[in-house]
């Protein structure tokens, strides 16, 4: 079995507070993997360790079999790892088109060119427009991102992450704060964009988790409590005790 991402005994702490206490995560090629867990379980920290925002105190991260523990975020991205942000993280003074153009430029590997105008980079504009059409954002093409509705800006956030064409994409609560309809649209968009790719998603909305994920990992106090298919997770007694018990009732 080949894993696209593997963490080995990952540990991290903030000023002595142990947030991640030995996590061995294995993500298979092409699977949709959800990470759930109560607030403070260390989901976002795990995300930040995997994507390179922090360097772990201990342990290793293997991406496509390569040790990336010490690589900077941009290098991990170039190897094929992309992420979205929990808090929408866009460019205030740029249009939707310009957002995706940056993503596509990165995919094309045109990063430092300062001789050729962007309008003359072959295929760039076409690709951006094709991407916009694919995610139904064409009508907002020349609008500033800061003027988009919440749902649309979340969609742009996700599309921007996918624009660099990563093999593994990490989505940090893509549906947080969305209405039921927005959530439905977002799930559709995630399905559409991540076909054939590996994905890790952190999400509080259990409907989203169970409808999207092939496997679910439950994180509890910085450790993996269980890792199994959604139906097995729902039956798991430990998980119920620790988290789902009252979590499910609320849903």
């Amino acid at each position: 079995m080949s894993f696209i991402l593997e963490t080995q005994d990952l540990r991290h702490d903030f000023k002595g507070m142990k947030v991640i206490r030995g996590v061995d995560l294995q993500i298979r090629q092409g699977e949709r993997h959800a990470i759930i867990g109560p607030n403070g379980a260390g989901k976002t920290t795990l995300f930040n360790l995997v994507t390179g925002m922090y360097r772990p105190r201990h342990g290793h991260i293997l991406f496509k079999g390569q040790d990336v523990t010490k690589l900077k975020p941009y290098k991990r991205n170039r190897l094929g790892m992309g992420r979205s942000f929990q808090i929408t993280s866009l460019f205030e003074h740029q249009t939707v088109f310009e957002h995706l153009r940056l993503g596509i430029l990165s995919r094309m590997g045109v990063r430092y060119n300062f001789f050729k105008p962007m309008t003359m980079v072959k295929g760039l504009t076409e690709e951006v427009d094709a991407m916009l059409a694919r995610v139904n954002l064409s009508e907002y093409r020349d609008q500033w991102a800061s003027l988009l509705s919440y749902g649309k800006s979340r969609a742009l956030e996700m599309t921007l992450t996918m624009a660099t064409n990563p093999d593994l994409v990490l989505l940090d609560e893509p549906c947080a704060g969305m209405s039921a309809e927005e959530t439905r649209n977002a799930v559709g968009l995630i399905r559409e964009l991540t076909t054939g790719k590996s994905m890790i998603i952190v999400e509080h909305d259990m409907d989203v988790v169970f409808s999207l994920a092939d496997r679910v990992t439950v994180l509890h106090y910085g450790k993996i409590l269980a890792c199994d298919t959604p139906s097995e997770i729902q039956k798991n007694k430990d998980v119920k005790d620790a988290y789902l018990g009252h979590g499910m009732k609320k849903q």
């Binding site: 991205n77 170039r78 866009l90 003074h93 153009r101 430029l105 980079v121 660099t164």
Partner: peptide, 24 residues
């Protein structure tokens, strides 16, 4: 107007995001 110029504008608005898009 060149790609590097475009990246600069991205850095101005949100350097972290630009880094996660694969730009140094």
């Amino acid at each position: 107007k060149t790609p590097l110029g475009g990246v600069q504008a991205g850095i101005r608005d949100n350097a972290q995001r630009v880094e996660y898009l694969g730009f140094h």
